[in-house]
Design a protein around this nucleic acid. Structure first.
Lengths: 339, 339
DNA sequence: CTGAAAGCGCTAACAG
DNA sequence: CTGTTAGCGCTTTCAG
């Protein structure tokens, strides 16, 4: 009996009221007498009435769902962001609809359009490695469709953005390595199309400069798909091993893990000599061997914040004029050398 | 925050047709002339018409979305399962709506009810550690609401189930440890309420018996919340350290990682002596120190299969009579001792 | 305070 | 082949 699909009509009939009265009573309208309200509410509770949200959506042009687009779900950083998003959405009674674009701008676009046409009320998105043309997103935003970007954000679009302090994170990484006596620090990163790549690269350069170290382009390797395919990383490592370097700063979760794997698989490589510091949100970096010093982003909190901004924008009566860019600090997590 | 969108009415008006004709043309109905169809399709494409799925849902009582309920998203196993689910859903044009219950049966239920009332077309669920009363799920299923269980499945409900061969996985783990010369093998696992706990425990017992080893209850520790909170694990480890054991078999991702963390944090514990074999879907187990031998489930494939079964059930005209239980093999991944 | 009626955008009898 | 009509379940004027 718990799950019959009653409608407002059933309640109206049973109580000898009109559907509008019932609707209003349910929504606690001021124009309904307390007696009627109580009656309706009681009966509704008794039959375990649940409003049909589809009908409500159609009427209100609002679906209480938000779309999320990420590279892939099975990724430390993204899954933690989604955790944060879901937490906020749950507390505000929104559903979270997820899709993956696997670094393809085509899939990104088809997902955006699908989510838009399926009347999600807004979108949270981290751009794909391939994306250069943002005009379709801009058009949607101009139509009033709320979009909040996180992690990988557009440069010159007026919108809410939630990011980590990538520049500082990169800078800290270099400072740390230099303090450990490293002088030739390589950099493994993603495509230049992404904001995170450029910001972390800047941090890297700033770090070098602050320590009077030269910037050597041959020590910087870009993986166009952010290490989504291990081949990219193998290729980069092969190239790097022809250079001389005593430490490496890596600009992403997938890349960091992939680099360690690649090195582990090369019998020749001496893992103890080349220090690794990399962006990663793995919760078990301290268990790794060879060790890796992690640059950690507050992924959960970033997800929370992004969801809050989005829902706030969705529920705002007027068009947002002032867009915010929220920057979260990163944390450097050094692996204890207990063993 | 509304924005203009074309409707079937706009097309009808522009083309001097009735809405029903347009609707039928759009759906490629046999009763519409090819000429009219072409005209409608062309115009629709020109104005970039997108059908309002909410309206369609209301009419058809079908939303082309499926709900997924897991403990948490930021988990190796679950995120990989969701990856598989999303892949299949994407290819069949279904949306994936995600929610987390964090081992709470209350949250599980509220999520189920919410997803149901929001007219998702079906549900994929791995039960919470607390859940004992399945009657509300049974009621939904009796009403014809499609639910496919994966990983943590009910014992005696007629439904599709997708699981790993947990018994065999446990058995293999013990065989492996015994072959390495271990004789006192502990077991760290979750609550007895869960199918996976009982099956893996059985595998453990079978393994012991097959090797003429005694089953010692004091070597088996249950964490009621599957290690969701690290305290549980600390507690179990503290208890275990008072026993004598030379190896341990661990029954879940969270527990495996948590155990390694707990041990690492205890200066006294000699990590090299106690071999660890555990269920985990981490893709970097081979980088761990202390090493862990992984019992790996084909999580992605399990997600794919579960989604396929669900969508098949959703789209089937008649009630399913024969339910399937799909069992996937596990793989034992030994860490190479290269360093 | 309550009810009648219109309509959100779409589909599907039922008539032509 | 195409149009008319009647809803899906809910909200919301507009009248009483």
């Amino acid at each position: 009996m718990a799950f019959e699909n009653y409608t407002i009509k059933d309640i109206a009939k049973a109580l000898n009221l009109s559907t509008s009265t019932v609707s209003r009573a349910l929504r606690d309208s001021y124009e309904i007498s307390t007696d009627t309200k109580r009656m309706v509410l009681e009966y509704a509770a008794k039959i375990n009435y649940r409003a049909n949200p589809i009908a409500r959506s159609l009427k209100e042009k609002k679906s209480y769902s938000i779309g999320v687009i990420v590279t892939e779900i099975a990724n430390n950083f993204f899954s933690q962001v989604i955790d944060g998003i879901e937490s906020v959405a749950y507390s505000k009674n929104y559903q979270v609809v997820i899709s993956q674009m696997r670094e393809s701008s085509v899939r990104e676009r088809s997902n955006v359009e699908y989510l838009y046409s399926r009347s999600t009320d807004g979108l949270l998105i981290a751009l794909s490695s391939e994306t250069t043309d943002l005009s379709y997103l801009e058009q949607l935003m101009n139509k009033g469709f709320p979009i909040v970007f996180f992690d990988r954000v557009p440069n010159d679009l007026a919108c809410h953005k939630v990011i980590a302090d990538n520049r500082q994170g990169g800078f800290d990484a270099i400072q740390y390595l230099v303090r450990k006596g490293k002088r030739k620090i390589a950099h493994l990163t993603g495509t230049k199309k992404l904001s995170i790549t450029m910001e972390r690269l800047e941090g890297y350069k700033m770090g070098l400069e602050a320590n009077g170290l030269p910037y050597l382009p041959e020590l910087v390797k870009h993986c166009e798909y952010g290490g989504l395919h291990q081949d990219e990383i193998e290729q980069a490592v092969t190239e790097l091993l022809q250079e001389e370097y005593d430490a490496i700063f890596i600009s992403g979760d997938k890349l960091s893990m992939g680099y360690l794997q690649a090195m582990k698989a090369r019998p020749g490589a001496d893992l103890t000599k080349i220090d690794v510091t990399g962006f990663t949100n793995s919760k078990v970096v301290n268990l790794f061997s060879p060790p890796i010093t992690a640059v950690r982003q507050p992924a959960f909190e970033m997800g929370e914040k992004a969801a809050e901004l989005l829902i706030q924008q969705i529920e705002s009566k007027h068009l947002i004029e002032e867009f915010e860019t929220i920057v979260f600090p990163t944390t450097l997590i050094e692996q204890s050398v207990s063993d």
